[in-house]
Protein backbone atom coordinates (compact mmCIF):
# COMPACT_ATOMS: atom_id res chain seq x y z
CA UNK A 1 0.00 0.00 0.00
CA UNK A 2 1.33 3.43 -0.90
CA UNK A 3 -1.24 5.57 0.93
CA UNK A 4 -0.02 6.69 4.35
CA UNK A 5 -1.75 5.09 7.32
CA UNK A 6 -4.70 6.94 8.90
CA UNK A 7 -3.27 6.26 12.32
CA UNK A 8 0.34 5.45 13.18
CA UNK A 9 1.47 4.81 16.73
CA UNK A 10 5.03 4.00 17.77
CA UNK A 11 6.24 3.17 21.26
CA UNK A 12 3.36 4.89 22.99
CA UNK A 13 3.63 4.88 26.78
CA UNK A 14 1.41 6.25 29.53
CA UNK A 15 1.39 5.81 33.29
CA UNK A 16 -0.93 7.11 35.95
CA UNK A 17 1.21 7.38 39.05
CA UNK A 18 2.87 4.00 39.61
CA UNK A 19 0.48 2.22 37.30
CA UNK A 20 1.70 1.66 33.77
CA UNK A 21 -1.32 1.69 31.46
CA UNK A 22 0.45 1.67 28.10
CA UNK A 23 3.82 -0.04 27.98
CA UNK A 24 4.91 0.80 24.42
CA UNK A 25 2.09 0.42 21.92
CA UNK A 26 2.81 0.16 18.18
CA UNK A 27 -0.02 0.24 15.65
CA UNK A 28 -0.67 1.16 12.03
CA UNK A 29 -4.25 1.58 10.89
CA UNK A 30 -4.57 1.65 7.08
CA UNK A 31 -6.73 4.46 5.68
CA UNK A 32 -10.28 3.42 4.92
CA UNK A 33 -10.19 0.30 7.09
CA UNK A 34 -12.16 -0.76 10.12
CA UNK A 35 -9.66 -1.55 12.83
CA UNK A 36 -10.65 -3.21 16.09
CA UNK A 37 -8.67 -2.76 19.27
CA UNK A 38 -9.64 -5.79 21.27
CA UNK A 39 -8.98 -6.16 24.94
CA UNK A 40 -10.46 -6.76 28.34
CA UNK A 41 -11.28 -3.98 30.81
CA UNK A 42 -8.17 -2.12 31.87
CA UNK A 43 -6.12 -3.25 28.88
CA UNK A 44 -5.51 0.37 27.85
CA UNK A 45 -8.02 0.72 25.01
CA UNK A 46 -9.68 3.91 26.24
CA UNK A 47 -6.32 5.45 27.20
CA UNK A 48 -5.07 4.85 23.65
CA UNK A 49 -8.20 6.42 22.16
CA UNK A 50 -8.00 9.42 24.51
CA UNK A 51 -4.39 10.06 23.48
CA UNK A 52 -5.31 9.82 19.79
CA UNK A 53 -8.20 12.25 20.33
CA UNK A 54 -5.85 14.78 22.04
CA UNK A 55 -7.70 14.43 25.34
CA UNK A 56 -4.67 13.00 27.11
CA UNK A 57 -0.92 13.45 26.67
CA UNK A 58 1.27 10.41 26.22
CA UNK A 59 4.37 10.06 28.38
CA UNK A 60 6.47 8.77 25.50
CA UNK A 61 6.35 7.58 21.90
CA UNK A 62 4.65 9.19 18.92
CA UNK A 63 1.21 9.08 17.41
CA UNK A 64 -0.11 10.60 14.21
CA UNK A 65 -3.70 10.77 13.03
CA UNK A 66 -4.42 11.61 9.40
CA UNK A 67 -0.75 12.59 9.12
CA UNK A 68 -0.85 15.04 12.03
CA UNK A 69 1.12 14.59 15.25
CA UNK A 70 -1.18 14.45 18.27
CA UNK A 71 1.37 16.20 20.48
CA UNK A 72 2.42 19.05 18.20
CA UNK A 73 -0.59 19.51 15.89
CA UNK A 74 -3.58 18.83 18.16
CA UNK A 75 -5.87 21.34 16.42
CA UNK A 76 -5.28 19.66 13.03
CA UNK A 77 -5.90 16.25 14.61
CA UNK A 78 -9.20 17.46 16.07
CA UNK A 79 -10.15 18.72 12.61
CA UNK A 80 -9.64 15.20 11.23
CA UNK A 81 -11.48 13.10 13.80
CA UNK A 82 -14.67 12.42 15.66
CA UNK A 83 -14.96 10.63 18.96
CA UNK A 84 -17.87 8.52 20.09
CA UNK A 85 -17.00 7.82 23.68
CA UNK A 86 -17.86 4.93 25.95
CA UNK A 87 -21.12 6.49 27.08
CA UNK A 88 -23.50 8.20 24.68
CA UNK A 89 -22.31 11.81 24.98
CA UNK A 90 -25.56 13.49 24.05
CA UNK A 91 -27.29 16.47 25.60
CA UNK A 92 -30.34 15.12 27.41
CA UNK A 93 -32.05 18.46 27.84
CA UNK A 94 -31.98 19.14 24.12
CA UNK A 95 -34.04 17.41 21.46
CA UNK A 96 -32.38 15.02 19.03
CA UNK A 97 -32.44 17.59 16.26
CA UNK A 98 -31.03 20.31 18.53
CA UNK A 99 -28.13 18.02 19.43
CA UNK A 100 -27.25 17.56 15.77
CA UNK A 101 -27.69 21.25 14.94
CA UNK A 102 -25.42 22.14 17.88
CA UNK A 103 -22.59 19.98 16.57
CA UNK A 104 -23.17 21.32 13.03
CA UNK A 105 -22.85 24.89 14.32
CA UNK A 106 -19.70 24.06 16.27
CA UNK A 107 -18.22 22.58 13.09
CA UNK A 108 -19.18 25.81 11.30
CA UNK A 109 -21.28 24.11 8.63
CA UNK A 110 -23.18 26.40 6.27
CA UNK A 111 -26.51 24.62 6.80
CA UNK A 112 -26.51 22.80 10.14
CA UNK A 113 -30.30 22.37 10.03
CA UNK A 114 -30.25 20.53 6.74
CA UNK A 115 -27.35 18.30 7.82
CA UNK A 116 -29.31 17.48 10.98
CA UNK A 117 -32.43 16.51 9.03
CA UNK A 118 -30.42 14.34 6.62
CA UNK A 119 -28.79 12.47 9.49
CA UNK A 120 -32.08 12.05 11.35
CA UNK A 121 -33.53 10.41 8.25
CA UNK A 122 -30.46 8.26 7.69
CA UNK A 123 -30.46 6.98 11.27
CA UNK A 124 -34.21 6.48 11.38
CA UNK A 125 -34.64 9.08 14.13
CA UNK A 126 -36.88 11.60 12.35
CA UNK A 127 -39.93 10.61 14.34
CA UNK A 128 -38.29 11.20 17.72
CA UNK A 129 -36.31 14.25 16.55
CA UNK A 130 -38.48 16.81 18.34
CA UNK A 131 -38.44 15.04 21.70
CA UNK A 132 -35.87 15.61 24.42
CA UNK A 133 -33.17 12.97 24.37
CA UNK A 134 -33.80 12.22 28.07
CA UNK A 135 -36.90 10.29 26.92
CA UNK A 136 -35.05 8.21 24.31
CA UNK A 137 -33.99 4.56 24.58
CA UNK A 138 -30.34 3.55 24.93
CA UNK A 139 -30.14 2.33 21.34
CA UNK A 140 -31.59 5.55 19.95
CA UNK A 141 -29.14 7.61 21.99
CA UNK A 142 -26.25 5.57 20.69
CA UNK A 143 -27.42 6.11 17.12
CA UNK A 144 -27.75 9.84 17.76
CA UNK A 145 -24.31 9.79 19.36
CA UNK A 146 -22.79 8.22 16.24
CA UNK A 147 -24.80 10.54 13.97
CA UNK A 148 -23.33 13.51 15.87
CA UNK A 149 -19.86 12.13 15.20
CA UNK A 150 -20.47 11.99 11.45
CA UNK A 151 -21.23 15.70 11.12
CA UNK A 152 -18.55 17.41 9.09
CA UNK A 153 -17.53 14.02 7.61
CA UNK A 154 -14.24 13.58 9.49
CA UNK A 155 -11.95 11.06 7.76
CA UNK A 156 -11.14 9.20 11.01
CA UNK A 157 -13.73 8.00 13.47
CA UNK A 158 -13.10 6.64 16.96
CA UNK A 159 -15.73 4.42 18.49
CA UNK A 160 -14.90 3.52 22.08
CA UNK A 161 -16.89 0.42 23.03
CA UNK A 162 -19.82 1.44 20.83
CA UNK A 163 -22.10 -1.44 21.83
CA UNK A 164 -21.34 -1.83 25.53
CA UNK A 165 -24.62 -1.77 27.43
CA UNK A 166 -26.81 -2.04 24.35
CA UNK A 167 -29.51 -4.64 23.78
CA UNK A 168 -28.93 -7.14 20.92
CA UNK A 169 -31.11 -5.27 18.45
CA UNK A 170 -29.41 -1.92 19.03
CA UNK A 171 -26.10 -3.70 18.76
CA UNK A 172 -26.99 -4.95 15.29
CA UNK A 173 -28.07 -1.43 14.32
CA UNK A 174 -24.70 -0.05 15.39
CA UNK A 175 -22.92 -2.79 13.47
CA UNK A 176 -24.90 -1.94 10.34
CA UNK A 177 -23.90 1.71 10.75
CA UNK A 178 -20.21 0.86 11.08
CA UNK A 179 -20.38 -1.30 7.94
CA UNK A 180 -22.03 1.53 6.05
CA UNK A 181 -19.29 3.94 7.16
CA UNK A 182 -16.61 1.51 6.09
CA UNK A 183 -18.29 1.36 2.69
CA UNK A 184 -17.92 5.14 2.39
CA UNK A 185 -14.20 5.04 3.02
CA UNK A 186 -14.13 6.39 6.58
CA UNK A 187 -11.36 4.97 8.72
CA UNK A 188 -12.88 3.52 11.87
CA UNK A 189 -10.93 2.61 14.98
CA UNK A 190 -13.22 0.81 17.36
CA UNK A 191 -12.44 -0.64 20.73
CA UNK A 192 -14.34 -3.59 22.04
CA UNK A 193 -14.20 -6.34 24.58
CA UNK A 194 -16.51 -8.53 22.50
CA UNK A 195 -14.68 -11.00 20.30
CA UNK A 196 -17.62 -11.46 17.93
CA UNK A 197 -17.85 -7.72 17.39
CA UNK A 198 -14.25 -7.54 16.22
CA UNK A 199 -14.82 -10.62 14.10
CA UNK A 200 -17.96 -9.19 12.50
CA UNK A 201 -16.74 -5.69 11.73
CA UNK A 202 -13.00 -5.38 11.53
CA UNK A 203 -10.64 -5.68 8.58
CA UNK A 204 -7.77 -5.83 11.02
CA UNK A 205 -7.65 -6.60 14.71
CA UNK A 206 -5.09 -5.80 17.37
CA UNK A 207 -5.22 -7.53 20.72
CA UNK A 208 -4.23 -5.17 23.51
CA UNK A 209 -3.25 -6.84 26.75
CA UNK A 210 -1.82 -5.12 29.81
CA UNK A 211 -0.79 -2.08 27.82
CA UNK A 212 0.87 -3.90 24.92
CA UNK A 213 -0.25 -5.16 21.52
CA UNK A 214 0.28 -8.90 21.75
CA UNK A 215 -1.18 -9.84 18.35
CA UNK A 216 -2.17 -7.91 15.24
CA UNK A 217 -3.44 -8.80 11.79
CA UNK A 218 -6.48 -9.72 9.75
CA UNK A 219 -8.85 -12.31 11.14
CA UNK A 220 -7.37 -14.92 8.82
CA UNK A 221 -3.85 -14.05 9.98
CA UNK A 222 -4.85 -14.25 13.61
CA UNK A 223 -6.47 -17.65 13.01
CA UNK A 224 -3.12 -18.94 11.77
CA UNK A 225 -1.69 -18.32 15.21
CA UNK A 226 -3.76 -21.25 16.39
CA UNK A 227 -3.25 -24.92 15.57
CA UNK A 228 -4.88 -25.91 12.24
CA UNK A 229 -8.62 -26.49 12.30
CA UNK A 230 -9.93 -30.00 12.67
CA UNK A 231 -13.22 -31.21 11.20
CA UNK A 232 -15.82 -32.25 13.72
CA UNK A 233 -19.53 -32.86 13.38
CA UNK A 234 -21.45 -30.66 15.81
CA UNK A 235 -25.22 -30.26 15.83
CA UNK A 236 -26.00 -26.60 14.99
CA UNK A 237 -28.11 -25.28 17.82
CA UNK A 238 -29.59 -21.80 17.52
CA UNK A 239 -27.77 -19.41 19.83
CA UNK A 240 -29.77 -17.57 22.46
CA UNK A 241 -29.27 -14.45 20.36
CA UNK A 242 -30.89 -16.18 17.36
CA UNK A 243 -33.82 -17.21 19.54
CA UNK A 244 -34.17 -13.76 21.08
CA UNK A 245 -34.16 -12.01 17.75
CA UNK A 246 -36.56 -14.54 16.22
CA UNK A 247 -39.18 -14.13 18.94
CA UNK A 248 -38.97 -10.35 19.21
CA UNK A 249 -39.19 -10.24 15.43
CA UNK A 250 -36.22 -8.60 13.83
CA UNK A 251 -35.84 -11.04 10.97
CA UNK A 252 -34.84 -8.27 8.62
CA UNK A 253 -31.65 -7.48 10.45
CA UNK A 254 -30.95 -11.18 10.76
CA UNK A 255 -30.78 -11.55 6.99
CA UNK A 256 -28.45 -8.56 6.83
CA UNK A 257 -25.85 -10.52 8.72
Amino acid sequence: MTTPPAIAIAGLTKSFGDQTVLGGVDLRVPAGSVFALLGSNGAGKTTTVRILCTLLRADGGTATVNGFDVATQPAEVRGSISLTGQFAAVDELLTGRENLVLVGQLRHLPEPGRTADDLLARFDLTEAAGRRVATWSGGMRRRLDIAMSLIGEPPVLFLDEPTTGLDPQSRLEVWATVRELAGRGTTVLLTTQYLDEAEQLADRIAVLHQGRVIAEGSLAELRQLLPPATVEYVEKQPSLEDVFLAIVGSGQQETDR
Binding site: C53, T54, L55, A75, R78, G79, I81, S82, L83, G85, Q86, F87, A88, A89, V90, D91, E92, V103, L106, R107, M148
Partner: peptide
Amino acid sequence: SSGIFERFQSMPI
Protein backbone atom coordinates in the same frame (compact mmCIF):
# COMPACT_ATOMS: atom_id res chain seq x y z
CA SER B 1 -19.76 13.26 33.72
CA SER B 2 -21.98 12.73 30.67
CA GLY B 3 -19.00 12.81 28.32
CA ILE B 4 -20.27 15.76 26.30
CA PHE B 5 -17.43 17.87 27.70
CA GLU B 6 -14.93 15.44 26.15
CA ARG B 7 -16.90 15.40 22.92
CA PHE B 8 -16.56 19.18 22.68
CA GLN B 9 -12.87 19.04 23.65
CA SER B 10 -12.17 16.52 20.87
CA MET B 11 -13.82 18.74 18.25
CA PRO B 12 -12.12 21.42 16.15
CA ILE B 13 -13.51 24.29 18.22
